[in-house]
């Protein structure tokens, strides 16, 4: 088993805030707005549906593949444009892209998440949207996911990476 170096790099967040300037608390409202729009898309495209996830894993509908595939294409194109034209952020900073270095956790953890995805019918984003749209019982799933994250943090140094 390979021992994880607890360097600052390995502890860096996976969805990091790379902004150099400090933001005011009110700036966070921007992310609430993006989240609200995102949550509406999740519900209206029925991505939060346990049934749609079952359809996807049974290859009985193209819907989810279409959603994820076109999201990736639009994301790729946007990133390409940002890089090509060196588009700056609203506060004039260079956009930062952090590499995601390979480690074996992506395989083991990825498989475990896949198992959970098909049981709960939700990845982390839809969990929040399911709760918002009235499936209160999913709060238990969310709490358990937080517990899972915590337990991973606790055993991290003993797990292969």
């Amino acid at each position: 088993m390979q021992h994880v170096q607890e360097s600052t790099e390995s502890l860096v967040c996976d969805a990091p805030n790379n902004m150099k300037k400090t933001e005011s608390w009110t700036a966070n409202l921007n992310y609430v707005v993006v989240g609200v729009l995102f949550g509406i898309v999740f519900v209206k495209a029925e991505i939060i549906s346990w049934f749609r996830i079952q359809e996807m894993f049974r290859l009985q509908s193209f819907h989810m593949y279409g959603v994820i595939g076109s999201a990736i294409l639009v994301g790729m194109l946007s990133v390409w444009l940002i890089r090509k034209y060196n588009i700056k952020t609203l506060s004039g900073e260079e956009v930062t892209f952090r590499p995601k270095p390979f480690n074996r956790g992506q395989i083991y953890g990825g498989l475990l998440f896949g198992l959970g995805w098909a049981i709960t019918g939700a990845c982390p984003g839809p969990l929040f949207a399911q709760i918002g749209s009235g499936y209160v019982v999913v709060l238990t799933t969310l709490l358990s996911a937080i517990a899972g994250t915590w337990v991973y943090g606790y055993f991290r140094h003993r797990l292969p990476h």
Binding site: D14, G105, G110, F113, A147, Y152
Partner: peptide, 12 residues
């Protein structure tokens, strides 16, 4: 839920 939380974090 546990698999989702544990798995995603391990996978990064």
């Amino acid at each position: 839920g546990f698999l989702v939380g544990f798995g995603t974090r391990w996978a990064g």
